[in-house]
């Protein structure tokens, strides 16, 4: 695009490196910033710089945090004997949004995939095992994506926990609420039939 200014061009270039932002969207955002007063723009860039400089990873669960230990881990009203194992920070937010979970989390930072060079030691598995032993955890919920790599990770972790008195559970997989049976793929429907539950068990209490 033929910008009249090198300053604009450079800023557009930076913006367009953000995920799902193309050149046109980037230019629109830049134009918006140009129309703002200087101190407003400063607030914006300060917020970004401040966040980047001060953000920490929680020493307990590896969630993103302002302090050494995150607000979830510090919250004493949460059940400390249950840990929900997730792949990324986004999953924590998704589960928190449901308002149906009151235990702690553990963010692995990925799943085991040798094809992509991710081995068991490259994600926070050992940290999870240590935490479980140290904190007297009784239930581990495996909330990983239902993929082959997610399954490998669950298999592996449960092997490491073998012999310990810990209840390992996984998210149930099946027909989505609000969907129609005829549009559910055969695989999911087949699994849901095989893993059917007594009536009343999967209803909100």
């Amino acid at each position: 695009m033929g910008y009249s200014s090198k300053l604009i061009e450079r800023t557009v270039e930076e913006f367009s490196q953000l995920p799902s932002i193309g050149k046109k969207s980037a230019f629109r955002l830049v134009l918006h910033l140009i129309s703002q007063p200087q101190d407003k723009v400063k607030e914006f860039t300060d917020a970004i710089n401040h966040m980047k400089a001060n953000l920490k990873t929680c020493a307990e669960c590896y969630n993103l945090s302002d302090e050494a230990v995150c607000s979830i881990c510090k919250n004493l009203s949460r059940q400390r004997t249950t840990i929900c194992v997730v792949e990324s920070v986004r999953d924590v937010i998704a589960i928190e949004e449901t308002d149906h979970y009151n235990g702690l989390y553990h963010v692995l930072g990925g799943v085991i995939s040798p094809l992509e060079g991710i081995g068991a030691d490259d994600i926070k598995i050992q940290e999870l095992i240590d935490r479980i032993s140290a904190q007297g955890v009784t239930e581990v919920i495996m909330a990983l994506s239902p993929t082959i790599e997610g399954d490998t990770t669950i298999f592996y972790i449960s092997k490491l926990l073998q012999g310990k008195a810990i209840n390992i559970t996984t998210l149930s997989r099946g027909v989505a609420f609000g969907s129609e049976l005829v549009y559910t793929d055969e695989l999911t429907l087949g699994r849901s039939i095989l893993a059917r539950v007594p009536y009343g068990q999967n209803h909100d209490k």
Partner: peptide, 15 residues
Amino acid sequence: STGLNEALLSSYDQQ
């Protein structure tokens, strides 16, 4: 390069 992780290899076997 990383050494054998018995539990991981047998996870693949079981899967």
